[in-house]
Design a protein around this nucleic acid. Structure first.
Lengths: 156, 156
DNA sequence: CCCTGTCTTCAGAAATTTCTGAACGTTCGC
DNA sequence: GCGAACGTTCAGAAATTTCTGAAGACAGGG
């Protein structure tokens, strides 16, 4: 149940799904490559081989994914190659990141609340503001709860 | 503090932010138009005027936003025009919808867990699966909590 | 029934995003 | 230092998304 082909298909499928969730295509493919790799670290060359793309594309993808905090650069002394490793907290980071987008929306909404006088629009905007404020408060607690729960009782 | 220009600017800015959050441009602009409108319902013509775009664009945008469950069609008897109204629970709906994307990701991950044998990749995939499973379970509770809290004590 | 106003669809234009390949830097081994 | 291996950047090509305008469908009034 571990044909190389099947593994790659699963990786590509996950990458495509992440694209559907809003990630850039190449970044998603790179991330999936890390996720599905048996090795702990990959070089840019490994990625180019695995994904079948140019060095330039790999460079761009890695830059983005690293900037998102999902992978980290590992400088190996005495090697010209630069290694990358997926960070342990990549998924919670990704989730938090989505909530920085929520924060942007919230700011825009607050601007809207200030811009309109009393009326229906004002009420709608306040409701939206309250919901997004709520989300923004709760999200970190969610993540924390997951981590505690996982440490505490990783049964099943 | 309610110049018409200022109102439109705020609406456009919010629309742009929603685009940054992954929404289609025209859909976001339409949604913002509803949010900022003083009227309770808008017709396609109203939207075309407000946004300065063609009827075709409005049709496409409205179709998408309606399909997302954010607005609803109101058929007015004895009128050729079709009215639309923003649904009260639009924001919680939008949030839940984002979590259907999470569900897609989860499925893809599970496929991955099945596709790889024991090893690092398998461990990583399991971790990811657990986190997304957790999120998917918690999200509905979050929304429910917000709604209860708002009903219960809408102070401040 | 036809006419008119309204909405939808769709082919193609325009804009935007994404990828590549080649030129340029950088760093290590010698 | 020099040469070779890697990595990065960037202009342009390719692919994708988005918008428009025109043609057609549909409903109601006359």
């Amino acid at each position: 149940m571990t044909g190389e082909t099947e593994r790659r298909e699963a990786a590509e499928h996950l990458a495509l799904t992440l694209v559907g969730a809003g990630m850039q295509r190449m970044g998603a493919r790179a991330l999936a490559a890390f996720l599905f790799a048996e090795k702990d670290t990959l070089t840019a060359g490994d990625l180019a081989d695995e994904l079948g793309v140019s060095a330039g594309s790999v460079s761009g993808a890695v830059k983005m994914v690293a900037q998102m905090g999902l992978i980290e650069r590992i400088h190996v002394a005495g090697s010209r190659r630069e290694h990358f490793r997926m960070r342990a907290n990549a998924w919670t980071t990704l989730y938090s990141r989505q909530h920085s987008v929520v924060d942007d929306v919230l700011r825009a909404v607050e601007k809207g609340v200030d811009a309109v006088g009393p009326g229906r629009a004002h009420d709608r905007l306040e409701y939206m503001r309250d919901f997004y404020t709520f989300l923004l408060n709760e999200a970190p607690m969610l993540v924390e709860r997951f981590e505690r729960q996982r440490r505490g009782g990783p049964r099943s």
